[in-house]
Amino acid sequence: MTDTLSFDEIKAKQQKVWSSGDYGKIAWITVPLADTLVEAADIRPGARVLDVATGTGHVALAAARRFCEVTGIDYVPALVESARRRAEAEALDIDFREADAENLPFDDDSFDYVFSAIGVMFTADHQRAADELVRVARPGGRVAVASWTPTGFIGQLLKTVSRHAAPPPGAMPPTRWGTAETMRELLGDRVSSLNTTTATVAQRFPSAEHFADFFLTHYGPTHAAAGRLDDDGKRAFRDDLIALATTSNRSTDGTLVSDWEYLVVVADKA
């Protein structure tokens, strides 16, 4: 029987996963979600904004372009540095820091808006991460989160990963954040309203095979999982990724066009 790992042990393993591959390339996929999320939250110029698990900074950049005072945090140093370079390229003044979504280095009630796009869903301790999002938002402030759904493409991809390389014992499925029921449970009565909408983002690749190879090379969860497999296991894993992409494909010209579903949650702090 395998002993369940502590959240700190799971977090250490997850940080290694997200530091593997090259998430900077995968992050292209989530660019459209940033504008969707900040618009869903009805962001206002001049607001104090925090982007949690910022990755390469999509939401932070989107908020700064709307003339907000923005801070972005992530626990992967290379991603924080990439976000800083992107902000510098656009001459945007954003405070990017290395920090943990489960232990935000900010006082209570510090921000008007607290965002996370495809970020906090991958924390080890889901409740603690949700608690932190609410804690640092001011009363009447807004928490807005975008997460892949369990039934959508990435939800199915993560299930495929788990079949080939089991997650750490005790790890929570990240796509819990992609259901309205779980979000109501995580945020609880600390928010006065909670609205959810489901959206999709179209993703395009030259072929299903190209998608599989691109994700095996660059996406942390698939890259790390493949590294744990022997040659036969890697071939079977790649075949399953190709099959998943092929099943989702709505293109008829040999390329891959797939709609990836995510949940947008907007809640106001009580």
Rank of each mutant, 00 (worst) to 15 (best):
R238I: 04
L33V: 13
K269V: 14
R128I: 11
D213R: 05
D230S: 15
G170F: 14
R235A: 15
V191T: 07
P139L: 08
K159I: 00
K269R: 13
D108C: 03
E69A: 13
D232T: 13
Y75T: 04
T196F: 01
V257A: 14
S116Y: 14
I94C: 11
L61V: 12
L241D: 05
T30S: 15
W28Y: 14
V120C: 03
F214R: 00
P45A: 15
Q15R: 14
H210V: 02
V120L: 12
T179F: 06
G254Q: 07
R44L: 14
L186A: 12
S110N: 13
T4W: 06
M121K: 04
F215A: 00
E69F: 12
D240C: 08
A236I: 01
H210R: 02
E81S: 12
F96W: 09
E69M: 07
T56D: 05
V264I: 12
E102T: 14
V161A: 09
G24R: 10
M183C: 09
G227H: 08
E132V: 00
K159H: 10
P77H: 14
W148R: 02
A78G: 11
W148I: 00
H126R: 07
G254V: 05
R138A: 05
T182S: 14
V161W: 07
V49N: 01
P150F: 09
V257N: 03
E9N: 02
E132A: 12
H58A: 13
A34H: 10
A62C: 09
V52N: 02
R163M: 12
T71Y: 08
D259L: 10
L229N: 03
L244G: 03
S193V: 05
A270D: 11
P206M: 06
A226M: 00
F96G: 07
L256R: 03
D239Y: 10
T246K: 06
T54K: 06
G141R: 01
I154H: 08
L37C: 00
A78R: 12
V264D: 05
D3C: 08
D112G: 04
W28K: 14
H218Y: 07
S147P: 08
V59W: 08
L244M: 05
Q14D: 12
V70G: 02
T149Y: 01
L216W: 01
M1S: 13
A202K: 13
L216A: 10
L92R: 04
P150K: 10
L244P: 03
Q15C: 12
L244F: 14
H58M: 12
T222Q: 00
R190Y: 06
R163C: 12
V145A: 10
D239V: 03
H58K: 11
G155D: 11
T222A: 01
Q203D: 15
H126W: 03
Y75M: 02
N249F: 08
S110A: 15
T149G: 00
D253E: 14
S251V: 07
S192D: 11
E261K: 02
S258T: 11
G254F: 09
T123C: 08
A64K: 00
D93N: 11
A208W: 01
P32Y: 04
I43S: 01
F237K: 01
A226D: 06
A41W: 15
L104V: 12
P221H: 00
P105H: 02
H164P: 05
D74I: 05
Y75A: 02
S110Y: 03
Y262N: 10
I10V: 06
